[in-house]
Design a protein around this nucleic acid. Structure first.
Lengths: 342, 342
DNA sequence: TGTTCTACGTGTAGCGTTCTACATTTTCGC
DNA sequence: GCGAAAATGTAGAACGCTACACGTAGAACA
């Protein structure tokens, strides 16, 4: 008398059951799963059909114990910025038709989040606009493949891949555009307390182009924190100052919208009293109440390339790469040519 | 001659190494980790100190093989909606000081995402505004604990928990507010192709309150898809129609911003030509270029409660619960009392 | 006809946890 | 003091996969 096995375990199928059903070894099923070498077409077909029949799906935890989990993590510094939606889209299209899945981490601290992702055996991490010091990034990179979107460093000097838009150029283009449209006293609204290389680059670009355009004496960088209240105060102070700038270049669309808000509140008209330009070209720029000129850094492309590079890394590449996209200014009414009162 | 073990494995510490270091069994360490019964204070202290010393962190995959992964998944239907940031914040504060981590899934299809999360052994899932048919939700709930934010169903009739704002009431409050401010011809801008119970409830609330306020004959529900272009066309058609509504109640802030955009483009003034009201009370409502009256459903509270309920569920509760928050109208200029031309 | 390759399959040892079953020690009522 | 109960600790079998190390059978070559 043999103990009969439960016929329908009601639980999800395992690789063993698939092997049993297909009449092959567990190892063979695993090979099919991984598209590994040494499987005949017949065997593959048999296994595939059993997998379908049993509705088999590999369990990520179990895979994680031996190798990959086919999961990559995404970390953003600021969730309120609508820009990250564009990056998402790019990540998604890169992941289509692969076994990989992306997950965005949710946490207060980026450091804690990174650890949590390592604990959870992510195969790799995409860090967007990381503010962490270089040493921290290097430490993370030594433990898990990462690619940084928006982090400037010398090509080849980092053990991780980098995907950037040319932030320095982006800032220069903005200044060139504004001055070309008759705004010479251009201030820049930047971020404080964040040693981000992206901000640095944009500030450098702004400075250099102002000088090259002969407006060096008008250089004026105001820094505020991300907090709405703080931005409002800074913008108001700027707009109330005796030599009110003719234009404000904001380091992010989000800040630009806040600038528009303050200007509107003060009864100023845009762009006649003050022009405003943002960065990211998010969907809100198009709205008629904003009509915000902004720099397009094609978040979607950034996300796509970052994902591609990350997967290459996970699958073995060892030399680091950089990918740079060219920014372009998308002109809208907020920086329309100045009507100089003759 | 004994083979000497590598002294510094350079790899992360495992539970075995902690046990070795603390001079106790692996089982004991596991107990400490899980706060399980049967550990003396002395042992606990020893183990804790070894864990600190070795910088030990449990590996989620390995835990997943036996029990929990201490990870919960978040699924949103529309990533562009800034509302979800509020929910995030709530989830985070509920997770503070727990071992759990939240991850937001990124994918085109909610169904695929759910499967991916089950594959990855999430302990539970929070579904925000799910559009899936009831049967699908029941199927998912039979395989993994879920709580739905924004899904209306009879209390006790679902095997999963529900956290809602009273959408019917929210809509009623909007109508009441608008009519109280002199707008009688109130149209509603809703969503098509999405059998969401949230939308249903808001439509019902709108209808009922319109009737009760004696404006039944003005009821007018226009439905558009989420696509920007589609919304614009619908709003434009509405505003160009011979009996242009005096106010538009938009089912989401996002749509309301688009409505403001179209109205602005057409040269209409808000609220004198048309009042506009949104739903969600997202941060953009405050901006002077929007000044959007909106319904606050406190996304943060929703996220907090959903997380609390989900963890309770994961840890054993079996009867389902519902939690309802009361919506309230936050009045801004976009619905200011009508200046009736006498 | 033997010998060497190559292609295809299989057996099985872990991976790092959890948790049941059990062993040992301490406490306590009488 | 004695036996029972409570408290504390341990051993070791899973969990579902991957991938290394082999075995085997034809094909190709001499």
């Amino acid at each position: 008398m043999t103990t009969s096995k439960t016929p329908k375990p009601a639980t999800r199928a395992t690789i063993r059951e698939v092997a049993l059903d297909a009449g092959v070894s567990v190892a063979a099923v695993s090979k099919v799963l991984r598209d590994a070498y040494g499987v005949s077409d017949t065997l593959r077909a048999k296994v595939r059909s059993s997998m379908d029949k049993l509705n088999y799906r590999p369990l990520a935890s179990a895979r994680g114990m031996r190798g990959r989990t086919y999961t990559i993590g995404l970390i953003f510094p600021d969730l309120r910025n609508p820009f990250f939606g564009d990056v998402f889209a790019g990540v998604n299209s890169a992941l289509e038709r692969t076994q990989y899945q992306a997950m965005q981490g949710i946490s207060v601290s980026v450091e804690a989040l990174t650890e949590a992702m390592i604990d959870r055996q992510m195969d790799g991490i995409i860090l967007v606009g990381p503010n962490e010091p270089r040493a921290t990034l290097l430490d993370i990179a030594s433990r898990i493949p990462i690619v940084a979107i928006g982090h400037h460093d010398d090509p080849g000097s980092t053990p991780f891949d980098i995907v950037n838009n040319d932030d320095q150029l982006g800032a220069r283009l903005v200044v060139r555009h504004l001055i070309g449209n008759g705004f010479r006293n251009v201030a820049m609204l930047s971020l404080n307390n964040q040693p981000s290389t992206v901000i640095q680059q944009r500030e450098i670009g702004y400075r250099m182009e102002m000088v090259e355009q002969g407006c060096g004496e008008a250089i004026n960088i105001v820094r505020a924190s991300q907090v709405t209240r703080d931005v409002q105060i800074s913008v108001r102070r700027l707009l109330e100052s005796p030599d009110r700038p003719e234009a404000i270049f904001c380091w992010t669309d989000l800040m630009a919208f806040e600038a528009i808000s303050v200007a509107t509140e003060m009864g100023l008209s845009i762009p006649d009293d003050v022009a405003i330009v943002g960065y990211d070209n998010t969907m809100f720029c198009d709205f008629a109440q904003n009509r915000l000129t902004s720099v397009d850094q094609s978040g979607e492309l950034l996300g796509l390339q970052a994902t591609r590079l990350l997967i290459e890394r996970i699958e073995g590449r060892s030399e680091s790469e950089q990918f740079v996209v060219m920014p372009r200014v998308v002109v809208r009414a907020s920086s329309k040519r100045r009507q100089v009162p003759d």
